[in-house]
Write a protein that binds this DNA or RNA. Sequence first.
DNA 1: GCCACCGGTGGC
DNA 2: GCCACCGGTGGC
Length: 209
Amino acid sequence: MSISGDFPPDPLLSTGSFISSPTTAGDGALPRGSEAIADEVNPSPSQQSDSKSRKRSAAPLDNWLPAGWRVEDKVRTSGATAGSVDKYYHEPITGRKFRSRTEVLYYLEHGTTPKKGSKKPKNTGSISDHLEGKGREKSSKKAEEQPLPPTLPPLNFDFENPPEKVSWSMADAGEEAWTPFVGNDKVQDSVKRDWCTAFTVITTKNPSR
DNA sequence: GCCACCGGTGGC
DNA sequence: GCCACCGGTGGC
């Protein structure tokens, strides 16, 4: 009854998703939609050959960045280090800003930023957190983001009983959309979106700070 | 008190 | 030497 090892050993925590979001500090042409675009983890080992290699060494791409996050390249304009560039990572939903990959990873893991001194015990149980329209809470550090009522969002995802197996197929080569199948049934787009949302909720769940 | 930004360093 | 990262602080 063990699982017949059919699928690749893909750790679900793998963050190796490819993003197509430009890393340019561009004008925020980013659609700060309320839609959490959680790219699915790369399901196939076939990576498109990197037609264009950067300069040397590995590409400085932010492949580890979850989909939807924004990278801002901030150039210093004064001081001894003027001209150097700082990277800032913006969380798309809460608008939070991080200074390093380390910070982002920590946030994705714990749902909060490391705070010395005050430690909040784990928050087991329901996911009370939810996506929110962007916005930056400036005045209050407390209750970072969760104006949401205790009621669960209309998330159509059963956290207790996830589908046992999902097959992802690339329907159209032209599309960059992967279509999930459970058994032989195509999963509805709305459901797929809920999965993405669920993913985001999980990875950004915030105890309360 | 926050936040944005610069300085400086450790790792590669 | 370059780059990522984080400490610290000055300004608001």
